[in-house]
């Protein structure tokens, strides 16, 4: 008998707990990525000497290196310098920073998509910078950005499995633990895959619909 049904049913509650951790880490990571990404995009746009170049390089560097290695760095290197946090927090922060580099690009394209006349009108009206960004540019830029953020949210949901390598007990980590203690990998890994699919497939269909709805009106 290849598939042990009783065993499969018995491990579902444990895997669902793992799924909850995965969802938590994804939401926390997305929050960090959305805020930090916005900050990075604005910093680049403001073109402050040195700062903008540093930010640009940081974004390119983060995008050019693997998430796993970044996670190892944060988890193994930082404690040597007195900064230590538990695996969950480290994982959420690392994945948040990693995705902020991608989200910065999304925001950038959103900001660039705002018509130049809007900027000119702001200048003509003599609006202060905070009002320009907060009331004029960002509300228009973010509209097109929303569905893309959704895409990255789903991507992060799947990528968070990588964090099991730094001992975060999320869905895959749970599946692996069950597998190694029972010497049966087939059921936990298959159920974990199905759980990932059950959440990410409908959400990506939803995001596709959002994408069409929020498409820029030309």
């Amino acid at each position: 008998m290849i598939w042990d049904n009783a065993f499969a049913v018995s491990i579902i509650p444990q895997l669902l707990q793992g799924l909850v951790v995965t969802v938590e880490i994804t939401l926390l990571g997305t929050l960090i990525a959305a805020l930090l990404g916005l900050a990075l995009a604005i910093l680049r746009r403001l073109a402050i000497p040195v700062v903008s170049q540093v930010v640009t390089f940081a974004v390119v560097f983060i995008r050019g290196t693997p998430l796993l290695v970044q996670a190892y760095c944060a988890f193994f290197v930082l404690p040597d310098y007195g900064i230590s946090a538990d695996a969950f927090t480290t994982g959420a922060i690392v994945i948040g920073i990693n995705y902020s580099a991608y989200m910065a690009e999304v925001y950038r394209s959103g900001i660039q998509g705002v018509h130049i006349g809007q900027w000119e009108a702001c200048t003509a009206l003599g609006l202060p910078a905070t009002r320009v960004w907060g009331r004029i540019i960002l509300p228009q830029a973010l509209r097109t950005v929303v569905p893309m953020l959704g895409n990255y949210l789903i991507q992060m949901f799947k990528d968070s499995a990588v964090l099991s390598a730094i001992t975060v007990v999320e869905l895959l980590g749970t599946a692996q633990a069950i597998g190694s203690s029972n010497f049966r990998y087939l059921e936990p890994l298959t159920i974990a895959a199905i759980l990932f699919l059950i959440i990410s497939y409908p959400s990506s269909r939803l995001v596709n619909r959002l994408e069409r709805r929020y498409a820029p009106q030309h």
């Binding site: 990528d159 087939l186 298959t190």
Partner: peptide, 15 residues
């Protein structure tokens, strides 16, 4: 596309 790469890799390797 709907499942994690790492899950797939483990599945190929362990399952």
């Amino acid at each position: 596309r709907g499942t994690s790469l790492l899950v797939q890799m483990f599945w190929f390797f362990f399952a």
